[in-house]
Design a protein around this nucleic acid. Structure first.
Lengths: 341, 341
DNA sequence: TTGAAAGCGCTACCAC
DNA sequence: GTGGTAGCGCTTTCAA
């Protein structure tokens, strides 16, 4: 049986309240008493029961990380977020509870809110926009502080931390234009709503700034439920009467797959075709050629998400926390000069 | 304010006990009453308070994942474990709480045990053997069910889930021998105790089976606190009067680093030198040449760890759970024939 | 079949 | 400066 405050009380002939005060530095306790209590607590190995504390204080000092996406598809990203998330949380004496299998399950989220087993929720990779909005409203109704990661939500009252995807796509496109490319393929992934929207906006912005006409034939909407979507994007674009000389893929893994596809077809990268990824995962640096890509500041995003959430927990009347973090263009060997013919 | 059992009680004019029984399918409750309770619970949106439940039942339905290693150094592995861990846990109605910054901190682990905020602990990447043993004894003293991952612990009373590193190293070595290599370099990492020991045993076994003499000069003990240890291993071995024609590195990232080191030095892989990694991370498949390596069944290991821990939680008198899982040799292009001179 | 009451371990209020 | 007491929300005897 663990040592309880009652045991201390008996040992020291002091009331439970006094002991509690001494232990929590609350109220007036004589220095001498404090000392005795601390001493005895240490000797007996007293540690307050988390459950009893939680019940009494009506908070748990835990935050929930709700992963709203097939977990194995995002575990790479998770790995980069977790150090930031967990470190900041623990510095603030909070812990992280992982909830992985509640994708799109409103009931389970509702129950999580109502059971009050966490003080706040980080919603990671929520599904399409309408569902995300519904989820957030639901949590608001339950008065559960929450923040969306890593996606921008275009609603004034929703907190989120995201990367600047518009600028990322703009940087990549501008980089290709500078290399002489004029026909630049672009892969979309509409299901990730604002992320997709922002990237597309960055792409068109770069084209406009360079005075290049937007050609809808060069823009392919992919569907990640299709196992082979990157191949489809690639094939569709290369089958065009005038195929592009460069393609922006939606993710690094997509671009990496295309690397081998191209090799198999005798298309040399970057001599015949430049391609880019997005995210800057570890693998993107070791392929042959290494990928030109854009890196999101995942560790900082994780930190910021927790910091913002803690702020929302501390004061629920605070304004929504909306953060868009800068990205970094990484130029490597998968993009090269386009020689005009 | 959340709906409590008391609210239901008032609404239905039933006692709290009856409601609790109806909700938990316990005791005898008339079907009609049961129905009414369930109905009202649903309508009012009742969800039991986790804290109150935990306090009363003296358990939390949570398991702790204590990461005993600088988190950013293992987050890649963590990512591969987490899907298995979390999925199995959630199927059994448990959740995972992450504790990342308690490396080597016995006090914090003790406190975690005493606060009873988890029902069991998975100790991931514990430090050197003696500390691991101390940690496990400590948890045993606190009667906290626990299991070590992903390392074998050579004590009868400690539960663990590990991969078969001995067989992994044996497979790699035998593969190289079959390719004609006789002088095979081997990198050790003593700090990971049994893992290192087992790998070394696999290496020597393969040599012995092939009738090759063990040459201590070919075995380098690395120190991961040295930022550049793989370069040091590589340089030391290649500076030998008779350098090896193949080297087993301790991890994939180490081998990947050496890939570029070798290229910079004009050493062709695998023509001049064969190298292998260990772990089979994603990147190992996209390098040029791709790495020959050994894959640990991380997802299964995660699953098994949770299953075993749940068993220990359910029945603390059960025998220790010790599991060593088979590994898989992945032959790729970083190893090639050695032509005798 | 239902209900009253005790109590899990803690904190906070209010007397003293 | 200290202690008595109530109560957080639930489950579990035990009695009716």
């Amino acid at each position: 049986m663990p040592v309880t405050i009652e045991d201390l009380s008996k040992t020291l002939n002091l009331s439970r309240s006094t002991i509690s005060k001494a232990l929590n530095d609350r109220g007036d306790v004589s220095p001498r008493t404090r000392e005795r209590v601390l001493q005895a607590a240490h000797e007996l190995g007293y540690q307050p029961s988390a459950a009893a504390r939680n019940l009494r204080r009506q908070r748990t000092d835990k935050i929930g990380l709700v992963v709203n996406y097939p977990i194995h598809q995002v575990s790479d990203f998770l790995a980069e977020f977790i150090p930031g998330l967990a470190t900041i949380a623990e510095e603030a004496a909070y812990n992280l509870i992982l909830y992985t299998s509640m994708a799109g399950n409103e009931t389970r989220i509702t129950n999580l809110c109502r059971s009050r087993e966490v003080d706040g929720i980080i919603v990671a990779w929520p599904p399409r926009l309408s569902e995300t909005a519904a989820l957030c409203r639901l949590m608001s109704d339950e008065r559960m502080p929450h923040i969306v990661l890593p996606r921008r939500v275009p609603h004034d009252d929703v907190s989120y931390v995201a990367a600047d995807h518009k600028e990322g796509a703009r940087l990549l496109t501008a980089h290709l234009i500078k290399l002489g490319h004029r026909r630049i393929g672009f892969e979309r992934l509409p299901e990730v709503f604002e992320t997709d929207y922002d990237r597309h906006a960055g792409y068109t912005t770069a084209l406009r700034q360079a005075g290049i006409n937007y050609d809808p034939a060069l823009v392919i909407a992919a569907d990640s439920s299709d196992d082979d979507y990157e191949a489809r994007t690639f094939n569709t674009l290369m089958a065009l009467p005038q195929p592009p000389t460069a393609i922006l893929f939606f993710t690094d893994p997509a671009a990496i797959k295309v690397l081998s596809l191209a090799k198999a077809r005798g298309i040399s990268i970057p001599d015949d075709l430049s391609i880019t990824g997005f995210d800057g995962i570890l693998s993107s640096g070791v392929t042959e050629p290494a990928l030109t890509t854009v890196r999101q500041p995942l560790p900082q995003m994780g930190k910021l998400a927790v910091e913002s959430l803690l702020r929302l927990i501390a004061d629920e009347t605070i304004e929504p926390q909306q953060h868009t973090l800068p990205v970094e263009l990484i130029v490597r060997r998968s993009t090269g000069l386009h020689i005009r013919t």
